[in-house]
């Protein structure tokens, strides 16, 4: 199952879902979550998910079910507005709170320190963005972010290049 996390004010994830259905994908193969009406706080950096309640975020809001779905998904796509050439803060809040999927423990991988992941399966990550995002930067960021979580980047696409993103969604 692939997950589409839509934080955009224009609910652009709906357009992606329509395209997916049009291209023959079944509704059971993916899930879109519109987070715009959900209560999702920023990460407060308490480190409880590493050192006090391993794997569990201390913030009690609408995020926990999303994280659980992310953990089990094959792919996670962030559909995001952009500011300062980067993701919106709403999307970044969701990303920052992925930390319970990693543990406090460390290792070296490809010459750099990484946290040891908590679960055996890791989702891959992709981005579909709207607005004046800096695609080169977002690509670099997505690759780095995926590296940190033991997975790979699926790519970064402007919403007007949605068809390209959709090709990657079941590649």
């Amino acid at each position: 199952m692939n997950l589409i996390l839509d934080t955009t004010q224009e609910h652009l994830g709906k357009r992606i879902v329509e395209e997916l259905l049009r291209s023959g994908k079944r509704q059971t193969e993916f899930e879109r979550i519109d987070t715009t009406t959900m209560q999702i706080s920023h990460c407060i950096g308490c480190n409880h998910c590493w050192l006090k309640t391993p794997g569990i975020c201390s913030i009690k809001d609408d995020y926990a079910p999303i994280l659980k779905k992310m953990s089990g998904a094959g792919q996670v796509w962030f559909v995001s507005d952009t500011r300062f050439g980067f993701l919106s803060y709403q999307t970044k809040n969701i990303v920052d709170r992925v930390l319970p999927l990693a543990t406090m423990n460390l290792k070296f991988k490809d010459g750099q320190m990484r946290h040891v992941m908590r679960y055996d399966h890791q989702p891959d990550f992709g981005i579909v963005f709207a607005g004046d995002g800096d695609r080169d930067y977002l690509n670099w960021w997505c690759q780095r972010m995926a590296l940190n979580f033991g997975s790979r980047s699926l790519g970064v696409f402007h919403v007007e290049q949605m068809q390209e993103a959709i090709k990657c969604m079941w590649s």
Binding site: L51, K52, P54, G55, T103, N105, Y119
Partner: peptide, 24 residues
């Protein structure tokens, strides 16, 4: 380091292994 992290966790009142799989 692994031992130290677990000790730090214990000082925060945690007796769960730091690599516990919370959802399995």
């Amino acid at each position: 380091a692994k031992k130290r992290f677990q000790q730090a966790a214990a000082s925060w009142g945690c007796d769960t292994p730091l690599d516990a799989k919370a959802w399995e």
